[in-house]
């Protein structure tokens, strides 16, 4: 997605003049240079997606190979008319919105710390990045054991009620899953935002200071607007990732128990556990469409904001 659109967006705005020969040749060269990457992408992503779509139009269960038949869109109708799918979409959206919002706020604070740290920059940045370097499954196990009713250390902490059992309720489980997600990926968010912060020119801050703007005013009136593209890119990456959440749930509440089932867990259950390739592929394609929708919305927002920056409105 991004690979295909970004070059077009960052290229200089097309002029209304007729293209010169040189421009044409350059364009051709550009296509040639892109070709290997495009072909590789088609092979490793295009083929599986097309194949999954083909499967999603069939009634195809690995256990009943003889019953295989073409059923058109009925798998989609089945998924979209079930309450399970919509419940899982809601759960997924809830996890995505809450965790990405927390990550944005925390990530911004951490990015500011990293940006403004005067001494020990290296160690500060390295420390902040540690959670991101840990394998998600390992991190998920750490969170699960921390809240385990028999061995969890959390219950020995002050201010935590002894009889609180988060993993026994839906709300508690979602809380732990979101915490694990936030802990793991906030550094990534911070890193992307840090790159955005570095782009804000110091002169603007100095000019604003001279004009008597307070620190908060400078943050909201100068830093944030100029960082908008960086923020959108960070949000895009994290929203796409969070929407496909799987491993944290798989480990913390196996099987998506207690109403923590995300759409990816549902797809896994149908595809891998029930080996129902037709129905499972339909779910996969629907998740894919959701992801495209999210990406398109963000890329659109990104386009307008870069255009604004260039003063084109």
């Amino acid at each position: 997605m991004e690979a295909a659109t970004t070059p077009a967006r960052t290229a200089p705005p097309p002029t209304k003049k007729r293209k010169t020969d040189r421009a044409k040749a350059e364009r051709k060269l550009a296509w040639l240079l892109c070709a290997p990457a495009v072909i590789a992408m088609l092979l490793v992503t295009g083929y599986p997606i097309v194949y999954a779509f083909y499967l999603s139009l069939q009634k195809f269960d690995l256990r009943f190979p003889d019953d295989k038949e073409f059923v058109g869109l009925s798998n989609y109708a089945d998924v979209l008319s079930s309450s399970t799918w919509w419940n899982d979409v809601l759960t997924t959206v809830l996890i995505t919105v809450v965790s990405v919002s927390i990550e944005l706020v925390l990530g911004m604070l951490i990015a500011l710390v990293m940006h403004l740290a005067i001494f020990g920059r290296g160690p500060v940045r390295a420390t902040i990045l540690i959670p991101y370097g840990i394998v998600t499954v390992v991190a998920a196990f750490a969170w699960r054991y921390a809240f385990d009713p028999t061995s969890g250390f959390v219950f020995g902490l002050p201010l935590v009620p002894d009889d609180w059992q988060p993993l026994n309720t839906r709300e508690g489980s979602l809380f732990v899953i979101i915490m694990a997600e936030v802990w793991k990926t906030t550094p990534f968010m911070a890193l992307l935002l840090l790159a955005g912060l570095a782009l804000v020119p110091d002169e603007l801050h100095e000019a604003a200071k001279v004009d008597g703007a307070s620190t908060l005013q400078r943050f909201f009136r100068i830093t944030l607007p100029l960082m908008r593209p960086a923020i959108l890119v960070a949000l895009l990456f994290r929203t796409l990732d969070a929407f496909r959440i799987f491993d944290n749930i798989f480990i913390i509440q196996p099987g998506g128990a207690l109403g923590t089932e995300s759409v990816s867990i549902l797809g896994y259950n149908v595809l891998i556990n029930r080996v129902n390739l037709g129905l499972g592929s339909a779910i996969s394609i629907l998740i894919f469409l959701c992801v495209i929708l999210i990406a398109v919305l963000f890329v659109k927002g990104l386009g307008t904001s870069t255009a604004q920056q260039r003063g084109e409105t």
Partner: peptide, 8 residues
């Protein structure tokens, strides 16, 4: 008589 963490 339900043990702690019964549902998990």
């Amino acid at each position: 008589a339900a043990p702690p963490g019964m549902s998990t």
